[in-house]
Computed example of a mutant assay.
Amino acid sequence: MLRPVSTVAVSLALAVFLSGCGKEQAEEQRPRPVMVVHPQSAEAQLETYPGEVRARYEPDLAFRIGGEVVKRLVDSGDQVKQGQVLAELDPKDVKLKLAAMKAQVTAAQANLKLVRAERDRYQQLLEKQLVSRSQYENFENLYQAGEARLKQVQAEYNVSANQAGYAVLRAPRDGVISRRMLEVGQVVAPGQTVFNMAADGEREILISLPEGNIGQFSIGQAVRIKLWSRPGVFLSGKLREISPAADPQTRTYAARVAITENDGKPVDLGQSAQVYVSPAGDIPLSVPLPALTADGAQSYVWIVDPVELTLKRVAVTAGPYGEEEVPILHGLQESDWVVSAGVQLLNEGVKVRPVDRDNRPLSLAGGE
């Protein structure tokens, strides 16, 4: 009785074992899920400097003469056109001075007319030998003095006329009033800044460079620019200007970055920006740290064929490791799909099922 029972038990155990092997083989043949990502720009590996979008030309506007402000026609943020009136001073004093100079011009003209007539009369008398040459020369000198006096007061009148026009402050070119520093009733001195203007046209990024490594920067050095309003979009630029002296309070050097290659969209004043500086001016790609594996001194990553959905090990050149990412200097393209975790358990040519960080299936051939 025992022998038949033992035979049946062995048969059942063998069947269960074979069934388990079949399941393992089926599971091995089933595509394995792998988390994949695209390589990203290795921004964290570059020196980054925050900045602000500024105009290429930012003139300080001031009256050429002093006086009391009687009109203020624009405010901060207003768009202005070339020649537009911005503010006016009380013109009473300059008009009075202009009238006084005009009276002096009239007096000088009358005096010149008188001495000219006397000179001409004495010239006729000299020709008839009725007066001496010294008498004639005296009136000739009076005439020349009168002529010089007229030229002097005429020039002074022109200056006064110009000053009358200086009582009106006009925009030197198209732009935006970025700052206002006057009010009606305020008395301003000649040359005192009353408006800051951001001229239309070229835009730049104003950044501050640290004193410790200012020697690493040079005029014309290529940089990359990213605006906070356009995440993921990089603009090309170069260092156009570096201040020759450090700020006495912050101990940093002000620098201007010119935008050399834009994407066609306007860059608004005051926008926040990040300027990325690297020796070559290019931003390398980066992958998460778990995506990188090594065989001796050679580093590798696993990429997924978007059509066949099979694994391929690719040799890469890695840069200095970061806390979460590592830059890949050579070996990867932005369009590659890289396995970002569990790379130590992968094999060449294995069929996989790509998923994202939320374990959602990805269609790589569809470009998702």
Rank of each mutant, 00 (worst) to 15 (best):
2 L>M: 13
3 R>E: 07
8 V>D: 04
12 L>Q: 11
13 A>P: 05
20 G>A: 10
21 C>K: 10
27 E>R: 04
29 Q>V: 04
30 R>W: 00
30 R>F: 01
31 P>R: 00
35 M>G: 05
44 A>Q: 15
44 A>E: 15
50 P>D: 15
51 G>W: 07
53 V>L: 13
55 A>D: 09
55 A>P: 08
56 R>S: 12
58 E>H: 08
59 P>W: 09
59 P>Y: 03
60 D>E: 08
60 D>F: 05
60 D>C: 03
61 L>T: 12
66 G>D: 10
69 V>A: 15
70 V>P: 07
70 V>G: 10
72 R>T: 15
73 L>A: 15
77 G>I: 14
79 Q>N: 12
91 P>A: 06
95 K>H: 05
106 T>V: 13
110 A>H: 09
116 R>Y: 06
117 A>D: 11
118 E>D: 07
122 Y>P: 05
124 Q>D: 03
127 E>Q: 10
129 Q>T: 01
132 S>R: 12
144 Q>Y: 04
149 R>A: 15
153 V>F: 08
153 V>R: 09
154 Q>A: 14
156 E>V: 08
165 G>I: 07
170 R>F: 03
177 I>S: 10
177 I>P: 03
180 R>W: 10
184 V>D: 13
186 Q>E: 15
187 V>G: 13
192 Q>T: 11
193 T>V: 07
193 T>N: 05
205 I>Y: 04
207 I>V: 15
208 S>C: 09
210 P>N: 11
212 G>M: 03
218 S>H: 02
221 Q>M: 02
224 R>W: 04
224 R>P: 11
227 L>Q: 11
229 S>R: 12
234 F>P: 07
235 L>A: 01
235 L>N: 01
237 G>K: 14
239 L>V: 15
244 P>D: 09
246 A>P: 05
247 D>L: 05
249 Q>G: 12
252 T>M: 00
255 A>H: 00
266 P>F: 04
268 D>H: 10
273 A>T: 14
274 Q>V: 14
285 L>E: 02
287 V>Y: 02
287 V>T: 01
290 P>C: 00
291 A>G: 07
295 D>K: 06
297 A>C: 07
300 Y>K: 10
301 V>Q: 06
302 W>H: 12
303 I>Y: 04
304 V>I: 13
314 V>D: 09
315 A>Q: 06
317 T>N: 09
318 A>R: 01
319 G>R: 02
322 G>M: 06
326 V>W: 03
328 I>S: 04
333 Q>N: 12
334 E>W: 11
338 V>K: 00
341 A>G: 01
343 V>Q: 02
346 L>G: 10
346 L>E: 09
348 E>H: 03
348 E>K: 02
348 E>I: 01
353 R>Q: 02
353 R>S: 01
355 V>D: 02
357 R>K: 11
364 L>W: 14
367 G>K: 12
